[in-house]
């Protein structure tokens, strides 16, 4: 379903219904706001480096921007990738200041969520902003080959560590599977990323 340049998937509708019915801790709401801020950061940077956004896809797991036109330069890619977490950190800092001035628990909650979201997105995995930034940086400083190799290694390492911690948490807390779910999601999205790259750049 497309409204102008925003594409809404079924998953997103499910997320909204969950939010409406079950979220009393404002956890989900804060997450959505933090995600929106993150995307805004990306969007701003993309406009600045000349990229064109075809549409914004709202899925159950967050938002995706599909680009149009030529690929960005490596500098542009680097800037755009880092802008998202950057906006997130700024938001976290602002939220914390607001909380310190009496914004209440919601302010601190938003701050913490935004901070964690930014840190997570900076992990050097291929499907995350951090991985993209690392790839662009290495491609600029060394060669495409080096960039690919290092990114492949770092992606595997990151996914491995997250899954490991996920299992650890599962055992320690006797059943909490959320971290493990994140690790498995990383794995799945990495597979998806590989397929997209293969289709776009068939060797």
């Amino acid at each position: 379903m497309t409204l102008g340049r925003i594409q809404i998937t079924g998953g997103f509708l499910l997320l909204l219904s969950l939010l409406f019915c079950f979220d009393r801790q404002h956890l989900l709401a804060c997450f959505l706001v933090a995600a929106a801020l993150h995307e805004a950061g990306h969007l701003l940077a993309l406009r600045c480096v000349g990229g064109k956004v075809r549409c914004l896809r709202l899925t159950a797991l967050g938002a995706e921007m599909v680009l149009d036109g030529r690929r960005l330069s490596y500098w542009g890619e680097l800037a755009a990738a880092l802008a998202g977490p950057g906006a997130g950190f700024l938001g976290a800092y602002a939220g914390a200041l607001w909380g310190a001035r009496g914004g209440g628990e919601a302010a601190y909650l938003f701050s913490g969520i935004s901070f964690i979201l930014s840190v997570f997105n900076l992990l050097p995995a291929r499907s995350l902003d951090g991985g993209r930034a690392l790839f662009s940086l290495l491609a600029l400083l060394f060669s495409l080959r080096t960039a690919e190799l290092v990114c492949r290694v770092s992606t595997v390492t990151v996914i491995g560590i997250v899954c490991l911690f996920g299992v650890f948490l599962l055992v320690i807390s006797r059943g909490n599977f959320t971290l493990l779910a994140v690790g498995l999601w990383l794995l799945a999205s990495d597979r998806r990323e590989k397929k997209v790259v293969k289709r776009a750049y068939p060797r």
Binding site: F22, G95, A107, L109, I113
Partner: peptide, 25 residues
């Protein structure tokens, strides 16, 4: 019921809030 299964005794709200507090303080 659902929150029980998902959170399994874990208070994410407090965990995230503490991060915000650390930044704010």
């Amino acid at each position: 019921d659902i929150m029980g299964v998902i959170t399994q005794d874990v208070d994410y709200k407090a965990a995230f809030s503490s991060i915000g507090r650390a930044i704010g303080e």
